[in-house]
Design a protein around this nucleic acid. Structure first.
Lengths: 159, 159
DNA sequence: TATTGTTATACTCTATAACTATA
DNA sequence: TATAGTTATAGAGTATAACAATA
């Protein structure tokens, strides 16, 4: 990535521009900065952000189909295929046949998948705290609530 | 993109999973959803999110160098080259020589660039309101504040 | 020696269309 | 006919390394 200047780590003069209030840019920057950290941390587990997301949902007990994964993760169904392929090849998830619809494939994690996921999650949560270090705990929670509400209109669920 | 099911537009059952609290995923989803809308709107101006960001800063009067653009936008300097190339070819921005450092190139918008930017900005701001429609005005402002603070530790500047 | 802009290259991510098998 | 999964492909975005001009 960029950021070869130490100056960039301080509050830059360009942040005073109107663009510093552009939601798209703010989301892009925070997401990009987080992705670098996340993918770096996940490299130890041979995972990336997207494969980790799939693994997380496979571990959730909700028995998602590939179609649901695609919808929920905003991915194309074809992308889910290759993500599941990779995880399945490593024995972390399994494809099962849908009970009500034999076209659908239900993705569930194996024991090994659950183990890897658990370890990766710990590392990622630490990275999340680093990324939001400038925020108080209450502010971090509020940020998450607002992001969830903007996405799904969900006001709250059990923490 | 994905989202071929109407179900996906409603609150999906998968949002109840732990992953619905993952900041990385929340940022990725909201950013992705916004990008689609933004790039769609910007297509009328033959711009994309990133070239629009460069144009915005070129219009800011801050006279950024390419290096500053790269740092601020979290892009590699080589990416800035091609973005500026495209905008310069269309007569929207100009490369000037830095006053204190003749290596640096200062990017400024032309009159035409300012005109295009002004029009595009109106459309984008409308898209932003659509994207954050689930939030009240106060909540949208709070979301922006928290994003800015997480990024730069900036508590507040003039709205 | 270090930095700015530049060129080149490879890899990841995103977007589309077409095909198959089930419904 | 419509949907779930699959395959294939092209374009956008990201990450690196090397080089010339300037500091």
């Amino acid at each position: 990535m960029a950021v070869q200047n130490k100056e960039a780590l301080e509050t830059p003069r360009l942040a005073t521009a109107d663009i510093g209030r552009d939601v798209g840019l703010l989301l892009a920057k925070l997401h990009a900065a987080g992705s670098v950290l996340n993918n770096l941390a996940l490299a130890d587990f041979e995972l990336r952000e997207r494969s980790f997301s799939v693994l997380t949902l496979a571990c959730s007990g909700l028995e998602p189909t590939q179609r649901e994964l695609a919808d929920f993760l905003s991915l194309d169904p074809s992308q889910v295929v290759s993500l599941v392929d990779g995880l399945e090849k490593r024995g972390l998830v399994e494809r099962g046949t849908g009970r009500h619809d034999r076209r659908a494939k239900i993705i569930t994690a194996t024991d090994e998948g659950r183990k890897v996921h658990q370890q990766a999650r710990v590392v990622l949560e630490e990275g999340e705290r680093t990324q939001l270090a400038a925020l108080s705990e209450a502010e971090a929670a509020e940020l998450k609530r607002l992001l969830r509400k903007a996405l799904w209109g969900v006001e709250a669920t059990a923490p």
